[in-house]
Design a protein around this nucleic acid. Sequence first.
DNA 1: ATTAGCACTCAACGAGATAGAGTGCTAACA
DNA 2: TGTTAGCACTCTATCTCGTTGAGTGCTAAT
Lengths: 350, 350
Amino acid sequence: MLDERKLKILYAIINSYILSAEPIGSRTITKQYDLGISSATVRNEMSDLEDLGYLNKPHSSAGRVPSDKAYRLYVDQLLKMIKPKIDYDRKEEIKKALLKEAREIDQLLQNSAKILSAITSYTALAVSPKMMGARIKLIQLVPIDEFQVLLTIVSDTGVVKNSIFRLDIGVYEDQINTISNMLNHKLKGLPIDKVNDDLANEIMMEIYEYKNVIDEIIPIISKSLEDVQDVDIYADGITKILDLPEYKDLEKAKTFISFIEDKDTIIELLLNNSLTQDIEISIGSENIYDPIKDCSLITANYRLGDRVVGKVGVIGPTRMDYYNVIKNLYLVSLNISEIIDMLLGRRDSI
Amino acid sequence: MLDERKLKILYAIINSYILSAEPIGSRTITKQYDLGISSATVRNEMSDLEDLGYLNKPHSSAGRVPSDKAYRLYVDQLLKMIKPKIDYDRKEEIKKALLKEAREIDQLLQNSAKILSAITSYTALAVSPKMMGARIKLIQLVPIDEFQVLLTIVSDTGVVKNSIFRLDIGVYEDQINTISNMLNHKLKGLPIDKVNDDLANEIMMEIYEYKNVIDEIIPIISKSLEDVQDVDIYADGITKILDLPEYKDLEKAKTFISFIEDKDTIIELLLNNSLTQDIEISIGSENIYDPIKDCSLITANYRLGDRVVGKVGVIGPTRMDYYNVIKNLYLVSLNISEIIDMLLGRRDSI
DNA sequence: ATTAGCACTCAACGAGATAGAGTGCTAACA
DNA sequence: TGTTAGCACTCTATCTCGTTGAGTGCTAAT
């Protein structure tokens, strides 16, 4: 569709604009890139590119700025280039950083966001493994003293949830232990979202003698199981955007930051798009949410075994350094998958 | 030292400035406060107050701005007023908000920061209970499968720490349980910071047959005990300062935000000052750290029993609404103490 | 001791004027 | 026919400079 020269010029403009954040003029192109043509010719081509929708002008006597359509072209090209050739040295480097002080999954994801944000200087996001289809690996009650009990739930996706709660009626250690064993026996291996009140009642029938205690415990367990299913979100480098010229307008910066700090929306944002592609990119107006209509969001899946369980992402201005972001985000996501696999063990032993 | 009229004028200036953030002129005072004197008289008094160090002029033809010394006077007066009369209705209101979805201490503190930030519209901080002197209430190993073990440590300050780790050599459930019982028996009730390698060796002697396993486990427990002692910090409303006129300068805002996001420094900031006062206030230049030399930090202790174990705080411009902040911060801290007490139980049962 | 009156100060604001980067068109050229 | 030099035109950003207005400090009158 675009002949080679137009493509070269377009890429030159995109690359320059990513660096400078300022509209690019025809002379800038001829000076910085040796295309063997004069600025007048470039001007003609730029005019054509504008007609084709690849370039915009902030105002009539300014240089050109790439459109979302241009970034889309550019990025699709990049993706083809980056994915096949993995930089294994870099990958190991990142892995080392990810593992630093991270022996739990939450720390791993926190680290991922931190590292990605540091590498890219944009805002980085990570969501904890989704519980869809997760199973209970361990559920346990431990008496702490006469009135206090510790409830621990572990899922096969590596999420651990604790609650210390008080019972209004005193209990004996033996009681708690009996109930704990019973629970573990009954619930181990069950999908978390399948545990409901019917099951609770069933269990109660079997050890009717502890009815009082169990009546108190059931709602707490339900609540904890809900908590386990909550997706956590980790963000880092939110304030990095204050360094970008496009956010020198305080109002704009505040809108962006507020948006990112709204966890519910971010979870939707990350989990709504499909899980089929390894790397997904929404550029500018492709985004649904107003506050980020001039941002690009790049996400990558991570897996547990062969199931996609979560995502990491980077969000920045449409004028972002796509090459750097895509490359490193991809490596981070590959590493997360590997590390989770390592942490949780390959075999699906329950 | 200051006669009543000077004091009245000074307070009028402080109150106006807290509201407007703009230098206060003599006419503003006479118009807004009925002091029965003319602006010329006010001017003379203001000149005196400036000589005494209570007021500053941004430039020669501007109004006056309160100095740190003035805020100090004002705040010391406020403290005397606020502390004796607790607004119990308000306190219950806050308590309800604090307890919303907070059955664990970390959620409680997260909530505290959130609520304080919402009430005051400044940045709010909270640190988790210090482990100084905390004791082990429960330590436990649970086999998850042949290679994976869950380590749970609970302190008497209510902090729970989990680690799932892999053993390189396979173990039997019985082994883990034996070790777990032994550990709990030996370590329960001990101050966390007193558990060291000697103790570990002692334990190892007693169940020498599991030496291989224990060799693997000891360093993991050490690490976890260290983690338990780490103080967590909760911050909320960091970006609130973007709404303040004093931070319309982006560079200043960035410096502040970077400072707040540096957890280590913030922990130092909060835990360095003494634990004797219920409420502590550093105004502007009284702060040690450069980036907050034009901020005021107000902190309040919370207790477990009669021991001060942590702090909550609010940080904002020296021109902050001290009355509102002090009052609500105090109520929040009282509530936190009560809630922690409730969650952990009064009796020091181990 | 207080206050009216007035000259003086200084930041903030707005109106031109100017510079400079960039475009688009035209006409000449290979 | 595609390319390019040249030039008029456009538009923003920046700087200067006068004006405005809030505020002070001094003086003289009450």
